[in-house]
Structures are given as structure tokens and as C-alpha cells.
């Protein structure tokens, strides 16, 4: 926390999600669950209890048949920068269990520090955080597929998307061994971006002009969720449909049309 996030050394990992390409197929959700040892239960239809670090929302334009339209919107953790690293969740955590990294711009979640007060969940405007109401249980034999790179969480802690931070750590180990200094764009990709059959998710360093996200985030059709709350999120969305862009900032009926230029952080 503290200083403004600038300068060539500072990375700000983020995503640009092309909603025109996203088909709502659900691969990103499953890729995330499979990568991050996310547990499951017999009934997952109560979405307040269902742990989905990345959840796809179905938006509708609310118009009657046949002018109805729908659009899918994948929602990982926004890794809000706020102003100077003041993410809504980081500011309220009494246990320093969640922190904003100046080096990568990733909002971390440290399970062993978390004592489950859930202030962060209350403060997150994106519902990106989930609470473990139960200890995870895998059917007999299924623990075999658990990955050692991500520790399974216990009852009573909050969890959320980490931008597959363990993949960044592995990439850094690799470059250290190989004597290089920079993690290349394709060396660190999140599980969801990698799996997306539509290539709708682009992941990279928003500060690095060589990364695809740098250019894509500047799309005239780009927007971020609830931008006006000042959360300064690092997930950018692109949609050619105006109603989708308006839905992104939860405009109320009767509010003025979406401003021509979208502010970027």
C-alpha cells in the first residue's frame, strides 16, 4: 500500500475480457476450480454458498420478445487497485490476511491468517469473495487430483481468485534457474485464460506495452464494472453492445446515456 503504482518495474496484472466472443460455455469456471482445488458439494444451486472464484453472470437487456438479448459476463476477482492500493477488501481486513501487492498488483488471500470475520466479503462490491461454511470433502479417491500448488482451504476462511498466483511463482522460479530477469507474457497465464475456447480472456501486465492487454484495454468499447465506485479494478471488459456497457456500471433507469469516453485507470 502507499505509493501510486507507476514506473517500468511495477507490474499490474489484469485482464481484458471480450464479451462479444464469450459464449458463456463455462470452461473458465471449471478451469479455475480444477486448477485451484475448489471443492464442490452435492447441491451447488444456492449461489450464495457455492464457491466459484470465477462466476459467469447472465445479463439480459430486459426487452420483451423478440427484442430480448442476453450476454454472459465472467467475473473473477477484480484485483482492485483503488487509489494507491486501497482495495475495498484490503482496507477492512483486521488480520492482514488480504493484501495488495505493489509488485504485481495482485490482491492476495492468506488462508492461514484469515479468521473468517467476512468484513472483506461485505466490502467487496463484486461478490468475488466466498466463505467456507464447511470443511471441503472430496469423495473417496478424488483427492488424487488435488494440486500441491494450491493449498485446500479449511472451514471458516474466505477464499477468492488469486490470478493463479502460484503460476507466477513457478514462472519466476523457472526464470531464476534459467538466469533470465523477465517473466514472458506466455509464461504466466491464468488457468481460465488458457482454457477459454473462444480466446475471450486476455491476461497480462497492463503496464507493459508489449503485452496484448495493454492495447486491448484501450478499446473504445471497453468498460470496467462499477467504475464510479472508484475501485479502479484491473479487469476490463469489451462489448460492442451499448446495453451491456451500461449494465456494467449498474446505471439506473433514467440516468444519462453512457459517457462517450470511458475513463481508464
Amino acid at each position: 500500500m502507499g505509493k501510486e503504482q507507476k514506473g517500468p518495474k511495477t507490474k499490474r496484472f489484469g485482464m481484458v475480457i471480450d464479451l462479444d466472443k464469450c459464449t458463456g460455455c463455462g470452461s473458465c469456471m471449471v478451469a479455475c476450480m480444477a486448477e485451484n482445488n475448489v471443492p464442490f458439494r452435492k447441491d451447488e444451486s444456492n449461489k450464495f454458498l457455492s464457491l466459484t472464484w470465477l462466476r459467469i453472470y447472465k445479463l439480459t437487456n430486459g426487452k420483451p420478445f423478440p427484442d430480448t438479448d442476453i450476454c454472459y459476463l465472467p467475473r473473477p476477482c477484480m484485483h482492485c487497485e483503488g487509489h494507491g492500493g486501497h482495495s475495498p477488501c484490503v482496507s477492512v481486513c483486521p488480520a492482514v490476511a488480504t493484501d495488495y501487492s505493489d509488485e504485481t498488483g495482485i490482491v492476495s488471500q492468506i488462508y492461514t491468517r484469515c479468521f473468517g470475520c467476512r468484513y472483506c466479503m461485505a466490502s467487496c462490491p463484486y461478490h468475488a469473495r466466498y466463505f467456507n461454511w464447511w470443511d471441503p470433502v472430496w469423495p473417496d479417491g478424488m483427492e488424487k487430483y488435488l494440486s500441491p500448488n494450491v493449498s485446500p482451504r479449511m472451514r471458516g476462511v474466505v477464499e477468492k481468485c488469486s490470478f493463479c498466483y502460484h503460476r507466477y511463482q513457478l514462472a519466476k522460479e523457472r526464470i531464476f534457474i534459467e538466469g533470465r530477469s523477465e517473466v514472458e507474457e506466455d509464461e504466466y497465464q491464468t488457468s481460465c485464460a488458457q482454457a477459454c475456447p473462444a480466446r475471450a480472456i486476455t491476461f497480462g501486465d497492463l503496464n507493459n506495452p508489449k503485452h496484448a492487454v495493454y492495447k486491448k484495454k484501450k478499446s473504445p468499447n471497453g468498460f470496467r464494472l462499477l467504475e464510479r465506485l472508484g475501485t479502479n479494478p484491473k479487469i476490463y471488459y469489451v462489448s460492442s453492445r451499448e446495453w451491456v456497457r451500461r449494465a456494467g456500471d449498474n446505471y439506473l433507469k433514467g440516468e444519462g446515456k453512457l459517457k462517450e469516453s470511458v475513463q481508464h485507470g
Binding site: C25, G26, S27, M29, V30, A31, A34, E35, K144, Y145, L146, S147, P148, S191, Q194, A195, C196, P197, A198, R199
Partner: peptide
């Protein structure tokens, strides 16, 4: 142990992409 299924890069059919069932 098999821990994760991913789409095969450069495969002519899916080139790295994969569906929820495959995953």
C-alpha cells in the same frame, strides 16, 4: 497422479481450448 487436464496447444481441432466436460 493426474492433477489437471488442459487443452493441447497447436492441435488442429481445439488449439489449446477445452470445454467444461473435458476439464
Amino acid at each position: 497422479r493426474a492433477v489437471k487436464i488442459e487443452g493441447m496447444k497447436d492441435h488442429p481441432v481445439n488449439d489449446g481450448g477445452i470445454c467444461p466436460l473435458g476439464l
